[in-house]
């Protein structure tokens, strides 16, 4: 009985540890500079996705944007396809959620 209890406890501990590791990995914050190849605004206007071509690797990364300020810049085309962007985003599974999304150019 005691042996079974010990095994259950060890398994529970392993499960908890692995979940904690997964959670840490899923909350990874990344940053990149890239050129926008596609912008898609959601029908309700409350979110958008932008596909960025990473300037370093050439890989395409899809970022989800939900902050009003950036969404407004998509709507009035202050940010358009072809613009170069500096972004910080949180990777959680397959979803990359923007934490910062700014044009690299100033004046």
């Amino acid at each position: 009985m005691r042996k079974i209890f010990s095994i259950v406890m060890i398994m529970a501990l392993m499960l908890f540890t692995s979940l904690a590791v997964v959670k840490t990995a899923s909350a990874e914050e990344l940053k990149m500079t890239g050129t926008i190849t596609k912008i898609e605004l959601a029908a309700d206007g409350k979110s958008a996705t932008a596909v960025l071509k990473d300037s370093k690797t050439g890989a395409s990364v899809t970022i989800t944007i939900t902050d009003d300020l950036t969404l407004d810049k998509f709507k009035d085309k202050r940010i358009v396809e072809g613009d170069e962007i500096r972004t910080k985003y949180e990777k959680s599974g397959d979803v990359n959620t923007s934490k910062m999304f700014k044009k690299t150019a100033g004046c």
Partner: peptide, 24 residues
């Protein structure tokens, strides 16, 4: 606010660089 901040937020080399304030 947007009409003003289009220019006034981007001065000095990027968004919120020069004066560093946000009108939100």
């Amino acid at each position: 606010i947007k009409n003003c901040m289009v220019c006034h937020e981007a001065a000095g080399g990027g968004a919120m660089i020069k004066r560093g304030f946000s009108m939100t």
